[in-house]
Amino acid sequence: MSLLTQYDADARSVRRVTRRFLIIAILVTLALVVAIFVRQGLLRQTVSFSFVADSAQDIAKGQAVRIAGFRVGSVTEVNLRDDGSVAVSLEVDAGNARFVTHDARIELRKEGLVGSPTLEIVPGPDKTRLASAQARLAFSRADGLGALANQVRDEFIPILRDIKAITGALADPQKGLPGTLAQIRASSEALNVLLANGNRQVDGIGGTAVRVLGKAEEDLKHLGQMLETANQRLPGMLDRTQQVLDHVEKITAEAETSVPPVLRDGSAIAADVREIVSGAKQTWPISSMVDAPGPSTLKPDSDPRGEAGRAR
């Protein structure tokens, strides 16, 4: 009898322990599920917005949405519409929706021009009104390297045309430099002839001298007309040259602002990679496997440029 009583007590004890274990297991599982939900953002409050793009290039579901570089949401849906455009829906954390003004626009940017694409919400100038939930925002793509190259090409084409026009004008056999030079040559030849005649006839001045002076006066007038023509043409040419210089100056100014960031980004990425690699190399356990380089020696080469065999 006492044996049965003992058995019942043990069975109750086992049941109690099992029940406790099951309850704890369920609680832990629930806590894990809640943690996963929180981590995945399923329990956070969000505000939905949308925009329409002409192409889905560089836009994908799950893509980060940022405001001032901070991740505030993600793309939830990308659909092709009947008219061929692309409807994109995105969710922004409710806490950050205060930055999305009614005139905000969404810009597709690339990190460092060549990095991964992200959507950046750029708030508009009117901060008094916020965008309502489900609002459709304006969308634009930031210029990539291809667009920059096209821009440079577009700037260069008019310059090349100007240069072509100027060289064409200069090379014109009638109105350009060759024509002007030919006229000057003809005039100088006429003057030479005139001087030669003058020398020959210096003894018999008189009536002949008057004619010679008259001819000289005509030639000088002719020369004056030519100089006037040159004077009229030069400002035009100088103007066009000035235009070309203006173009070049403009491009240089734009390149000054657009090119250095590209270079800076490239160098920053390289520095980051170097830092990551060197950081990894210094971290245990990798550090114990990577040997630090020792002092280097270069192979002797008393004639690195092959100058000893130089043809004398």
């Binding site: 060197s278 630090a292 380089p293 020792g294 002092p295 280097s296 020696t297 270069l298």
Partner: peptide
């Protein structure tokens, strides 16, 4: 040392 080694 790493700069030297890279240079070499």
């Amino acid at each position: 040392l790493e700069a030297e080694s890279d240079g070499a």
